Simulated assay, not measured.
Amino acid sequence: MRLKIESIQIGTVVTEGDTEDRDPLSRRWTSAFRKTPVQGAVHVQATGIAGDQVADTKNHGGPEKALLCYPGVHYLAWAQEHPELNWGPGGFGENLVIADGWTEADVCIGDRWIGEDCELEISQPRQPCWKISRRWSTKTLTKEVAQTGRTGWYCRVIREGELSAGKELDLGERPHPDWSVARVNDVLFGREVDRLAVHELMNLSRLSQQWKASLA
């Protein structure tokens, strides 16, 4: 199995908005959520892509959330549902856009994806936060991401190295084939209600500690 990188995005920390505005969709915020595509190879290291910044280091970034991946096919659905918004790569703050129709249903927790120069491991789904709605000035968008399961997922960096758009990663290991990212989302958001499943998920060796704490 091969996973192809469609595009790579990084961002810098910026402050936007109005400190006096009481509307949460226009109030001042500081974030590196806005990502733009880069050309050529980037260096992937344990904490993410070199040059990609994180504003809220308490809740974002770090070794277990080094890279955020998002399926490119989801943008087709968002464009149909929200044609008023100007969608493009990096629109959900992701570092990697995944090509060829791959979604949360096709990848699993603990998957090892191996390239010529680096190796990644899926650690958890992306848990949607308020910044999605803030970025697009659309109050319902964070909730829509959770409801649709179009969350994307985070990866650890197992082996540092170079990565570029158009490259393919081979599936080297799948220790938890029963636990797709989509199913993990279903458990967290209550679409699959099964105490045994929750117990099993909490004990997955390669699920991030943050998600285990959320389940607890």
Rank of each mutant, 00 (worst) to 15 (best):
L3A: 03
L3P: 01
I5E: 01
E6Q: 14
S7A: 13
I8T: 04
I10R: 06
G17R: 06
D18P: 10
D18S: 14
E20M: 11
D21T: 11
P24R: 07
R28K: 12
T30E: 08
T30G: 09
A32M: 09
A32D: 06
F33I: 15
F33N: 01
R34A: 07
T36S: 11
P37G: 04
V38A: 04
Q39S: 15
G40P: 02
V44M: 01
Q45S: 14
Q45E: 15
Q45D: 14
G48D: 05
I49V: 15
A50T: 15
D52Q: 07
Q53R: 08
T57W: 07
K58F: 10
G61W: 00
G62E: 04
P63E: 12
E64A: 05
A66F: 01
A66H: 00
L67V: 11
Y70F: 11
Y70W: 11
P71S: 05
G72D: 07
V73M: 06
L76Y: 05
W78V: 08
A79Y: 14
E81K: 10
H82W: 15
P89S: 10
G90L: 00
F92S: 01
F92K: 01
G93Q: 02
E94Q: 08
G101K: 12
A105D: 13
D106C: 03
I109V: 15
D111Y: 03
W113V: 00
W113M: 08
G115C: 05
D117H: 13
L120S: 02
E121Q: 09
Q124P: 04
W130G: 03
S133I: 07
R134D: 06
R134K: 14
R135G: 00
R135M: 06
L141H: 04
K143H: 15
K143T: 13
A146Q: 09
A146N: 05
G149V: 09
R150F: 07
T151F: 03
T151Q: 03
G152D: 01
W153T: 00
V157K: 00
V157Q: 01
E160S: 10
G161L: 02
E162V: 08
E162Q: 12
E162P: 01
A165Y: 05
G166K: 10
D170M: 07
H176A: 03
D178S: 14
A182P: 08
R183M: 06
L188T: 10
R191P: 05
R191G: 06
E192P: 04
V193R: 14
R195E: 15
E200Y: 10
E200C: 06
E200A: 15
S205G: 14
S205P: 02
R206S: 13
L207Q: 04
S208E: 08
Q209F: 11
Q210R: 11
Q210D: 13
W211S: 01
A213S: 12
A213D: 11
L215V: 07
